[in-house]
Design a protein around this nucleic acid. Structure first.
Length: 284
DNA sequence: ACTATATCCTGTATGC
DNA sequence: TGCATACAGGATATAG
């Protein structure tokens, strides 16, 4: 559930908390979150130690910490990953998997992850952009995003539009929640083939996705429970603002028709059956 | 090139 | 009370 706005909230918190600090030691409590580190968990610990964090960057749902020598620590929060910044004497958060201690003996960086879909690794020469993220497309907040090219890319696909929105190689940062919200705003059914949408409608959809993620970011992100929190451990307040996601059987905020929940690729989709009717086979 | 499925995980909720 | 099952689902690998 951490999608672009939630990851951006975390990025901002980390930027303030760990930039220009030198990692002194790494404690690994559960090696499984380091499975993407090529040399294994022990190597992660020895490789990260002694390095100075320069900044914290984000692309889509990925974060990376450029290090002074050109490498980078890369992180993906998966479903339930959290970064917490706490004084070394404070008790560890639940499900804490990795602890980074700093040379200044200041607050520690703790990575906690209940479900462990998230991961950390060191990317050699990854400071400017880890090679492992080469396939991740620009996100809607990226100033380098070319909107016209993105619209063409979306409209060249025959898959359902939600599948395309969730494809991080097309546009990154959008997950199940904001896909449903954007589709609700644009009044589009999730299964509408992307190549049947006009360019203006795709632009409206992307505007809707940008707007809902901006609003969520301004509220500190979306959270329903303690699984998503910022580096201080507090939750975002956007959950109460959602119009479609999680609102099965509740009235559509536009027309009052009950929102329906439907199975969609091993997860759920929420839509208004009146505002977002299933497209006819012949077309939109 | 696209689609579907399995995999990784564990806490919470529900059914029997 | 306890056991089994479903569900939350992002990224990736693999099969078709």
């Amino acid at each position: 559930m951490p999608e672009l706005p939630e990851v951006e909230v975390v990025r901002r918190g980390l930027e303030t908390a760990v930039s220009h600090r030198t990692i002194a030691a790494v404690r690994v409590l559960d090696p499984r979150v380091l499975r993407r580190h090529v040399g294994g968990p022990d190597d992660f610990a020895t490789t990260a130690a002694g390095r100075t964090v320069q900044a914290v960057r984000r692309r889509g749902k990925y974060l990376w910490l450029p290090l002074a020598d050109g490498d980078a620590v890369v992180a993906h929060l998966g479903m339930s990953g959290q970064f917490r910044v706490d004084d070394p004497g404070q008790p560890l958060p639940a499900h804490c998997r990795v602890v980074l201690r700093f040379a200044d003996d200041g607050p520690e960086l703790r990575y906690a992850d209940q479900r462990m879909f998230g991961s950390l690794w060191v990317a050699a020469d990854g400071a400017a952009g880890p090679a492992e993220l080469a396939h991740i497309a620009a996100d809607l907040f990226d100033p380098e995003l070319d909107r016209a090219t993105l619209v063409r890319s979306i409209r060249s696909r025959r898959s359902g539009i939600k599948r395309v929105l969730l494809n991080q190689e097309v546009v990154s940062g959008i997950g199940n929640i904001y896909a449903d919200e954007a589709l609700w705003t644009a009044k589009i059914h999730y299964d509408t083939p992307a190549n049947r949408l006009s360019a203006p409608r795709v632009n409206l959809l992307l505007d809707a996705a940008t707007a809902v993620m901006s609003a969520a970011l301004a509220e500190g992100g979306t959270s329903f429970d303690a699984l998503y929190v910022n580096v201080n451990g507090s939750s975002g307040y956007f959950g109460r603002s959602l119009a479609a996601y999680g609102r099965a059987d509740l009235p559509c905020l536009r027309c009052g028709t009950p929102i329906v929940r439907e199975a969609f690729t091993n997860r759920s989709s929420y839509r208004c059956p009146r505002c977002q009717p299933r497209p006819r086979v012949a077309g939109e």
